[in-house]
Structure formats: C-alpha cells, structure tokens
C-alpha cells in the first residue's frame, strides 16, 4: 500500500457514525438530575458548575444581594457592638420601618438588612416562584431573622 492509498483509507474512516441507540433520553435525564441537584441540595459553587450560564446569571443578582445582606448584617452588628452607636437612623424606608424592629439599637441595623434581603427575595420569587434556590435563600434569611429575635430576647 503506498502513502496515497494509506492516507485515503485513513481519511475514509472519518465518517459520522451515529450510536447504535438513542443517547438523548439518558443525556436529558442527566441534565435534569444535574439541575435538580444544583437547585435543591448543592451549594452555590455547585450551582455555578451545573446550571447553564444565563440561568445562573438570572439568579446571580439575588444571590449577591443575599450575600451582601449577610455580610452587612455581620459588619453592622460588629460595628454597633464595638461602638455602641444607635442604628435607628438606618430604618428609614417605610416598607422596612413597618417590619419588626428590635428594641435593642445594636440589632436594628441587622434587622433592616435582613428585611431588605427578604423583600428582594420576595420580588425575585414573584418572577421565579418555583425556584428551590430562592426558596432556600428565603428560608435562610427567615432563620437569620429568627436568630436576631432570639438574640434580642436573650439580651433582655
């Protein structure tokens, strides 16, 4: 066999060759499982890995808002504990002012931030009511609010 024949024969092998069975049902199931897993039990890092980018980007602002709120809660809480300043001025928005406000001024800032996060999440859930991810964030935010109430009760 000369070089020309060799190469022609090799290139002839480069034909499309569909699989013997339809692989799509298995692929579709894996895509679904991956998304379900990301939405229900995986942390944000896994969600980032498994969900198509645009769907991630839709959730990202809300996830970021919740993260910012959580960081703000921590930062404000720490600042107020150390400086002992009143955070009463933070609760300026009417919607936020209507919500529960702790009597302890050191916890007011955290309460406002958590309530703001909760409102933002509620808005997001109006657009995506079935998103387990948003439900999880909302649940976490509510738990933080309850913790805040407990903190105030403990402080007397």
């Amino acid at each position: 066999m000369n070089e020309f024949q060799w190469h022609r024969q090799m290139r002839d092998l480069a034909q499309p060759e569909p699989p013997s069975r339809d692989l799509w049902p298995a692929i579709a199931a894996r895509l679904e499982r991956a998304d379900e897993h990301a939405d229900t039990s995986a942390p944000a890092a896994t969600l980032h890995t498994l969900t198509p980018p645009v769907r991630r980007s839709r959730l990202l602002p809300w996830a970021m808002a919740a993260s910012v709120a959580a960081v703000s809660v921590l930062a404000i809480g720490l600042a107020q504990r150390s400086a002992g300043v009143s955070a009463g001025s933070v609760a300026a928005t009417p919607a936020l002012a209507r919500s529960w406000q702790p009597k302890d001024p050191r916890l007011s800032g955290a309460a406002v931030e958590l309530q703001a996060a909760r409102l933002e999440l509620a808005q997001a859930m109006q657009q995506a009511p079935d998103s387990p991810y948003l439900h999880r964030l909302m649940h976490r935010t509510q738990q933080q609010q309850m913790r805040l109430r407990r903190l105030e009760n403990e402080a007397g």
Binding site: Q15, P16, P19, A28, L31, P52, V54
Partner: peptide
C-alpha cells in the same frame, strides 16, 4: 443557553454522528 433543552436536543441530533464517530 437560555435553558431550552429542546434546542439542545436538536443540536444533539445534528452533531451526534460526528461526535460519536
């Protein structure tokens, strides 16, 4: 990319032969 698995299935059907080969 916007989340349509139907579109992705069409892509699968178009390209699976070459990829599998």
């Amino acid at each position: 990319l916007r989340g349509s698995t139907a579109a992705f299935e069409t892509l699968y059907r178009r390209h699976v032969g070459r990829v599998h080969g």
